[in-house]
Design a protein around this nucleic acid. Sequence first.
DNA 1: AACATTAATCGTAATATTGCAATATAATAA
DNA 2: TTATTATATTGCAATATTACGATTAATGTT
Lengths: 111, 111
Amino acid sequence: MGLTKSEMFTEEQNEISNIAKVFGHPARVAILQHLFKIDTCICGDLVNEIGLAQPTISQHLKELKKTGLIKGNITGTSVCYCIDKANWSAMKKTLHLFLDQDLQDNNTCCS
Amino acid sequence: MGLTKSEMFTEEQNEISNIAKVFGHPARVAILQHLFKIDTCICGDLVNEIGLAQPTISQHLKELKKTGLIKGNITGTSVCYCIDKANWSAMKKTLHLFLDQDLQDNNTCCS
DNA sequence: AACATTAATCGTAATATTGCAATATAATAA
DNA sequence: TTATTATATTGCAATATTACGATTAATGTT
C-alpha cells in the first residue's frame, strides 16, 4: 500500500527510521556533504554542484529543513543554507544509540 | 518519476543512502532491535513481535538480507535469522564517517 | 517602472515502496 | 502418503517518492 503503519512502532523506532529516510537519497547526502565542506551555501551552488534541476534540489532542501538538519537564512534574493549543528548532534546521538548496539555473541545458530 | 539518478553521485554517496534506506522503515528497525536483544531469532517470532502480516515481515527480512545486515540459517522448517556482525561493523564505519563530520564553525551566514 | 535573478511552489508523469491475501515451497510429523 | 508447520513468492491495490517544466513570489538592478 505504500503506507507505513507508524502507529505499530515505538517512538524511537519511528524517529530512527525518519532520520534514516532523509539520508536515504544520494542527493540529500551530497547536499549535506557539500554543506559540511564549504560550511555555508546557497541553493544555486547546489544546483551546479549536484546537477539535478533547481526544483528538485529545492524539494530535497525542503525535506532536510523539515527534519531540522539544515536551516536557511534569506539574504537578498538568495537563501543561505547550512547545517543546524544542534539538531545534527541530537540526531547523531539517536543514531549512535541504535548503531552501536552490541551483541552478546552467544548466538549459536548463525555462526 | 520515483527514479533516483544514482549515476550522478559518488559511490560513497550511493552507499550511504542505500544503507540509510534500509533503516528508513520502522519495521526493519524493530526487526534489527529484536535481533540484537535476543541475539537469535526465527521469522515466526518476528511476526508475533511486530504485528505485521507474515508476507510483509518476510519482505522486510529479504531487504535486510539483501544488504547483508542479517543472515539466515535454515534449521528444519524454520529459518534462524541473526545480525551479520562483520557487515554490521563495516556499515557502521561507513555511516560514522558521514555522521561524524565536523564543522569548522566559520559559517557566519546562518548563526 | 521594467527587467533580471533566485528560490519556492504547482502540476504531473514515472517509478518505488508498503502491505496483504492467496498461493507455493519445503521440511517434518502422523 | 497425507497432513501440518514455517517461510517465501506472486499479484495487486494504495500510497510515497523522485524529477522536472512551467509558473509564481520576492528582491535587486537599471
